[in-house]
Amino acid sequence: MKRWLRRYVAVRSEKISADLLRRYIENELSEKERMDVQSRLENSKAWMMEYERTQKYLSLLHALPSHSAPDRIWSHIAREVRSIPPKRPEWIWLYANLRHVKNFAYGMAVVLLLILGLRFPFSEPAYQVVTIQDMNRYRAEAESFVANHELACESLLPRESLIAYYTYK
């Protein structure tokens, strides 16, 4: 939008834009822009001169001569290439072939994960496991707790007697 606005302002403000003319010559402008530049060219001599200059400049670029590579280059390359065998270790060859079955491998991995998920239902809640030892420990503690707290209202002697009784029972 910003670029379009800048170009629009450039055209409207009579400023000759070489970029715009270059894009016009190379057929890179939209139809509206093209028409706009065309009308400028028809009405303004300065624009026409700049157009001719840009066209000359572009023709110089297009007319740059092409040089053919000297024949001796290939003989150097051939000698070099024959002395160095192509580096292609076996595992790379394997990789190059395996990449064709990549999608199949991904698919199989997803299926395997689904099967494992169904086979081992990880989503079920984990129940607390209480061993017999734990239960016994709890029971022993409970007795001691009862002895210490529940009998708090008893007088000292029977309480201690009861504690001794439950502890060494």
């Binding site: 280059i73 390359i77 070099e80």
Partner: peptide, 11 residues
């Protein structure tokens, strides 16, 4: 450079 380019291509 041309020589090196084509050797690299082969490698």
């Amino acid at each position: 450079v041309t020589q090196e380019v084509f050797i690299s291509v082969f490698k």
